Simulated assay, not measured.
Amino acid sequence: MKAAVLNEFNRELALTEVEDPRIQHPGDVIVRVTGAGVCGSDVHWIEGAFKDVLGAPEFPYVLGHENGGYVEAVGSAVTSLQVGDPVLAHPHITCGLCRACRRNEASFCESLRFPGIDGRTAGGFAELFRTTEHALVKLPPGTDPAPMASLADAGLTAYHAVRRACGDLPADGVAVVIGVGGVGYFALQLLRLFSPARLIAVDRVAEKLRDAETLGADLTLSAGDELVDQVMEATGGTGVDLVMDCVGVAPVPEQSLAMLRRGGVYSALGADTGEACCGTLALTGRELTIKGNLVGTLGELAELAQLAARNRIQLTQTSYPLQDINRALSDLRHGTVRGRAVLVP
Rank of each mutant, 00 (worst) to 15 (best):
A154Y: 12
V337A: 01
G142I: 05
G270L: 05
G248Y: 03
H334E: 13
A250R: 15
E226I: 05
E12R: 11
N67R: 07
R338I: 01
E213S: 11
G335I: 02
E58S: 10
G55F: 05
G96W: 05
V83W: 10
D272F: 15
Y185N: 15
D218E: 11
N10F: 00
V228H: 05
L63V: 01
L242N: 08
A4K: 00
E17M: 10
A258C: 03
V43D: 03
A154Q: 06
M244W: 04
R333E: 11
L298S: 08
E105H: 09
A3Q: 01
P91M: 15
L281S: 13
R327D: 13
L193S: 09
R32H: 08
L112T: 04
L304C: 03
H92I: 08
L332P: 00
L63D: 02
S256H: 06
V137E: 01
V176P: 07
L188F: 01
E233F: 05
T132F: 06
L294A: 14
Y185T: 15
V252F: 09
G237V: 07
V176E: 04
P253E: 01
T284A: 14
I325H: 00
A135S: 15
G339Q: 04
N311D: 15
P57G: 04
P321Q: 02
E300T: 02
S222F: 08
P140F: 01
R192N: 10
G239L: 05
Q230G: 09
A165W: 07
D211W: 14
A328F: 00
L301S: 00
L209A: 07
R286T: 07
L257F: 02
G123F: 01
A187P: 00
V228K: 02
H92S: 12
C95M: 08
V43M: 06
I30T: 11
R310Y: 09
F114C: 06
M1I: 11
A305V: 02
P196S: 05
R22Y: 09
L97N: 10
E300H: 03
M232Q: 11
A309V: 06
R312L: 13
C39G: 07
A149C: 06
Q230W: 02
R340N: 09
P26Q: 12
L281K: 12
E8F: 06
Y159P: 04
V337P: 01
L315D: 03
A100E: 14
A328V: 00
K2Q: 14
L281W: 12
L343R: 00
V38K: 01
G48P: 08
F59S: 11
F114T: 08
G279A: 08
L257V: 09
V162E: 06
A146D: 10
A152K: 01
D203H: 01
C277A: 13
A187W: 04
T318H: 11
T238S: 08
